[in-house]
Design a protein around this nucleic acid. Structure first.
Lengths: 150, 150
DNA sequence: CTTGACCCTATAGTAGCTACAGGGTGTGCA
DNA sequence: TGCACACCCTGTAGCTACTATAGGGTCAAG
């Protein structure tokens, strides 16, 4: 099967498939006489594995690890698989908390301006300006919540 | 004041300050005879403004807009400021919802493997493999929740 | 014999920084 | 005077996970 057909079967863009190959996530397939990539059904499965993990928010590095365990189902304990998933859950959870705090801060800022104003008189801009001069602001009640989310 | 001092006063890295200047967010300061950047107190305020907005998760493009309104407090209505903040709140909110769904999916996957297993017998890996072959999986009860979060 | 759909490689762009390499400047100390 | 060391400069490459070209080749149908 050609790359376009693989793309259709997996819902993954052609360029992304070539990118995964370059990154060593998807094994390089055989080539036709004219140099076209020629995929086997197992490639569909491998690509689905990658896309499934991506849909769970995992990094390509983590997926590479998982795919390795997948390919070599050794009789060792699967602690590292669990640890990998646990880390991912922790990361997602902490992102949620960061964003929830962000949402509260933005809402507090937004509450500064509800009725129609002019720019010169806008509570939002004024709050942002005051905060720039080091004054306390509604959005950041404590100093520690002002760090920038990665 | 030199760039290092500005960095110290604002908690912003020197490279980041130069980056903001390149991007047109922070006005280019005067230079000393030896070519060193020489900042005024107003630069502290402007940089604080940028960092404050960044801590609210705003993009540099949005911050550029806000800084423009800030510099030109015209007597027009501040609708666009409000719209900008509202958009940001919407974006943050939808990111939270996406991540919460992700967390549920990851937890469902994690629940597949609690007691000690070998790799060959790991419920997590098995679930991921089955999903790659198109079988229904615990993490994605419906097909629509499988899209990849940006 | 041409059109159009497909394929190839290589490179540059996205956001918001961060981290060099390779050089110059300025101050303190022996 | 010589040297160490902290600071500054520009320019460029790296990070993630793609996406989007440019510029070309291949193949089947009409």
């Amino acid at each position: 099967m050609q790359i376009g057909e693989l793309a259709r079967q997996t819902g993954c863009e052609v360029e992304t498939i070539r990118y995964y190959e370059r990154e060593g996530l998807l094994p390089a397939p055989a080539r036709s006489a004219s140099g076209y990539r020629s995929y086997e059904p197992q490639h569909v499965e491998q690509l689905n594995f990658i896309r499934h993990c991506r849909s769970l928010g995992m990094s390509l590095a983590d997926i590479r690890q998982l795919a390795d365990y997948h390919r070599h189902p050794a009789p060792e304990p699967c602690d590292r698989v669990n640890a990998l998933i646990d880390d991912q859950i922790r990361r997602v959870h902490s992102q949620i908390e960061t964003l929830q705090q962000l949402e509260r801060q933005l809402q507090a800022l937004r509450d500064r301006c509800h009725s129609p104003h002019t720019l010169a008189d806008c509570g939002i801009l004024k709050t942002l300006e005051d905060a720039s001069s080091g004054e306390p602001c509604v959005c950041h009640p404590t100093a520690t919540d002002k760090k920038i989310a990665g």
